[in-house]
């Protein structure tokens, strides 16, 4: 099978997963109690007004027709109107993504900046003091809930030292620096558990690759220990690290919901959470689907990254 065909088959597989996922979400939301028209109009509304609105929203059509029109809307970017905000859901999601995407990206960057040096350092000399430090860090980092880290950071850096705002988000129009300042503590809170997991994986991968023959070949060329480590061991140890980065995406998203809540950031997690308390079902439906799409798309990207990191996969698979 040619590589192109293989990629197309894989993409088709992901598309199918997305369809099944979206249908599952749709059915669950359908089964949820509460009629959107009644929620919008309130309990005192007349029966015929409710019926008119139902017809207007297209709620009186058969279920499969509504599912199909939802999917068509997802493809064209028309996700319908929020019951409580009265604005288009797509717009709502777009606004919130402007907070959540920078937050998760910043957190990922911080996590990599911590875990890569720490994991490589620990893995290059197993059993040494630095290895012990890295092991303790990763054990604690995995165990500590990120929203609690968030609370501790607020306690220390906002309330005691006053270096950072304790929460809220000024928006990007006021200047990028203010926006970034508001995101620093939340992204650290989000990054620490990620960094812990990645440190662990990096360490294990480095230990394994360091024993490979080609590292000895590099040393026999005259490369010093560190040069051989960074130029030969590390590039070959990145594959499991990237895999883990992909596997962590669902946790990153869950974490974002919690951290946004701690720091009262108007992100997508807060949107979903508020939609749940206001029973804004159409928002829930679309946000959950969007999260699923992100997880699946990131997995596709990770697949692509493999080929860059490991030339063997370019020709073989």
């Amino acid at each position: 099978m040619t590589p192109a065909l293989k990629h197309m088959r894989r993409a088709a597989g992901y598309l199918l997963i997305l369809l099944v996922t979206s249908f599952l979400i749709f059915v669950l939301i359908e089964a949820a109690p509460g009629d959107p028209a009644e929620i919008m109009l309130g309990t005192s509304a007349q029966a015929d007004t409710v019926a008119a609105l139902r017809a207007d929203l297209g709620l009186d059509r058969p279920m499969m027709v509504r599912y199909a029109s939802w999917i068509a809307g997802v493809v064209t970017g028309d996700l319908g109107q929020s019951y409580t905000y009265g604005t288009p859901v797509a717009e709502l999601i777009g606004d919130r993504l402007a907070v959540t995407v920078p937050l998760t990206l910043l957190a990922t960057i911080i996590a990599i900046c911590i875990s890569l040096p720490l994991g490589v350092w620990a893995g290059s000399r197993p059993g040494a003091v630095t290895d012990g430090v890295a092991t303790v860090f990763s054990q604690f980092g995995i165990a500590v809930p990120n929203f609690w880290i968030g609370l501790l950071l607020i306690l220390l850096f906002s309330l005691s030292l006053g270096w950072f705002p304790a929460g809220g988000f000024p928006g990007w129009d006021d200047g990028i620096d203010k926006g970034i300042m508001a995101l620093i503590l939340p992204s650290i809170a989000l990054a620490i558990p990620q960094a812990a997991v990645l440190t662990r994986v990096t360490r294990a991968a480095v230990i394994e690759v360091a024993n490979e023959d080609f590292v000895r070949t590099a040393r026999a060329k005259g490369l010093g220990r560190n040069r051989a480590l960074w130029l030969h061991t590390v590039p070959n140890a990145l594959l499991p690290v990237v895999t883990m980065l992909g596997l962590q995406i669902p946790f990153l998203i869950s974490g974002a919901v919690l951290v946004e809540n701690v720091f009262t950031l108007p992100g997508i997690g807060t949107l979903a959470y508020q939609a749940l308390s206001q029973r804004d079902l159409i928002v829930i439906q679309n946000v959950v689907l969007m999260f699923a799409i992100i997880v699946i798309v990131v997995n596709l990207i990770v697949d692509g990254l493999y080929a860059i990191l490991d030339p063997r996969l370019r020709t073989r698979k």
Binding site: F214, T217, A220, H232, P311, R312
Partner: peptide, 11 residues
Amino acid sequence: FQEPMSALNPA
């Protein structure tokens, strides 16, 4: 080295 399969960096 002995093993040409593993003695070269695959990346």
